[in-house]
């Protein structure tokens, strides 16, 4: 089935098998490999992207369900806030300054989930950040600095 999807502001058209998961479409067909696959059980959140501005797990959608919709992946995040060349999104900057990553595998999903969280709750407290990120697992267990980064970003403290 042919689908038309806008990803990071760019229109894509492809013929896909209905059983193609959205994450496989994004990685293998479109070639955007920043979105990771972690668990295959809808648990880990490594594949989190934005669908029409909201966080979703791209391993738990078929590509055909995204037909006609607008997606944002980690590759397009900085440009989505008009960051100039080489500049990062404030959330990415906060993750950098707080050292909110160890191995980095969960990071793209964590960042996308965190941006969506602040869209819905611009001034969360620590408990709300922890609950808001319950769908993202960090197997380095580096949650402390991740939560710190989201709070710093919310307070506009990212340098």
């Amino acid at each position: 089935m042919e689908i038309a999807v806008k990803i990071n502001g760019e229109q894509h058209r492809h013929d896909v098998e209905p059983r193609t998961l959205l994450v496989h479409y994004i990685r293998d067909t479109v070639g955007l490999t920043g979105t990771n696959i972690g668990c295959d059980t809808s648990s880990c959140g490594a594949c989190t992207i934005h669908l029409n501005g909201e966080s979703v797990k791209s391993c738990t959608m078929f590509a055909v369900q995204a037909d006609g919709e607008e997606l944002l992946t980690i590759e397009g995040l900085a440009a989505s806030v008009n960051a100039t060349d080489g500049q990062m999104h404030p959330m990415q900057e906060a993750f950098r300054s707080c050292h909110a990553l160890q191995c980095g595998y969960c990071t793209p999903g964590m960042v996308m989930a965190s941006v969506s969280l602040l869209e819905e709750n611009p001034n969360p407290n620590e408990q709300e950040v922890r609950q808001g990120l319950e769908g993202n697992l960090c197997r380095c267990t580096g949650y402390h600095n991740i939560v710190k980064a989201v709070l710093e970003c919310a307070q506009g403290g990212a340098k």
């Binding site: 809808s42 979703v56 319950e134 993202n136």
Partner: peptide, 9 residues
């Protein structure tokens, strides 16, 4: 139910 990503879909 699930987590925010699950509840968005």
């Amino acid at each position: 139910v699930g987590d925010p990503q699950v509840r968005h879909r």
